[in-house]
Design a protein around this nucleic acid. Structure first.
Lengths: 165, 165
DNA sequence: CTGAACCTTTACGTAAACGGTAAGGTCTGG
DNA sequence: CCAGACCTTACCGTTTACGTAAAGGTTCAG
């Protein structure tokens, strides 16, 4: 998001390279642009989409949220917030030589990242709650098993008609 | 899944009550049946779907997997495996008075639950990996911030033209 | 015994998240 | 200079996970 302007842009990738790099399809990448998840850093003279390292990172993050965390693209949009805002912020940062403003922009970025982390932690907690419930069911079955075993040791033969010792 | 036959079925619920109880819609519940996620424990004389406590539990679990964990219904189907198998197992359990067979069936149930827990843990690990990556990005921004602050203290005035001390 | 509130199946509609293809412009090696 | 491999927009098709409505049977309180 915030690359210092002293480090000149190393290289811009075209969509197919980005697809190979991120494991997404070109179609998905264009679709994500369509629904406002990200805009390529630039367009070539011939209107080719050109992506920078920030875009790559963002796309990998999107992919993780989709595949690993199981968020819908709508949720991802909320998590990453408005792409328009991102573009504005990025441009303001690159344009600004005012250290105070830069500091504020970077500081803001940290706040947003913290929100993302909190959201991910929330998801983990929900899944952990499910695990606890599942473990309760497991314990229940364990108890059941013990019960059966008790009955078996007291009446080891294939006992017909409930003999409780 | 394994309710002892001595405890008589307390009550069977119709689809709308189940919907209220689980927070699903009747449509979803019927749809889950359609794609083989669960079959109601019984049908009334008039072919009304009738659900027991096991079904409720399963539906709540499905809902958790869908909403909290973000699994697709296909993935949920795999996780819970074939509903046909579930029905078979349930019936074999209810029919069997052979303690050895019962024990085996219950024991099998525990194995399946353990697999479910492992899958959920896997999901948590993937999300934790994402958190770690996000924290790396956060650290990067933090560094950037410190850098700016260093520059600001060395040249407190709105310094034009990079003065590194 | 009737009407309101359930239920059934069947079927068509829809939003999300893409896949595929057409029609055309661009770029690069031989 | 041109073939092959890129890229563009545009549009239609598909799967998933339901929503919604139609046409009819069931249940129960009054």
């Amino acid at each position: 998001m915030f690359s210092t302007p002293t480090e000149a842009s190393p290289r811009l990738l075209r969509i197919q390279e980005v697809a190979a790099e991120t494991g997404l399809t070109t179609r998905s990448i264009r679709y994500y642009e369509e629904i406002g998840l990200l805009k390529p850093a630039a367009r070539s003279e011939a209107a080719y989409r050109l992506y920078d390292a920030d875009d790559l990172e963002r796309l990998r993050f999107i992919r993780g949220l989709r595949d690993d965390a199981g968020f819908s693209l709508a949720e991802i949009g909320q998590l990453l917030e408005d792409e328009a805002a991102r573009v504005r912020i990025r441009e303001r940062f690159r344009a600004s030589h005012d250290l105070a403003e830069r500091r504020a922009l970077v500081s803001d970025g940290i706040v947003r990242i913290d929100r993302q982390i909190a959201t991910l932690r929330g998801k983990i907690e929900r899944i952990e709650a499910m695990i606890r419930e599942t473990e309760t069911r497991r314990a229940h079955l364990q108890g059941h098993l013990a019960e059966i075993d008790a009955e078996r040791t007291s009446t080891p033969a294939p006992a017909r008609r409930g003999a409780r010792r």
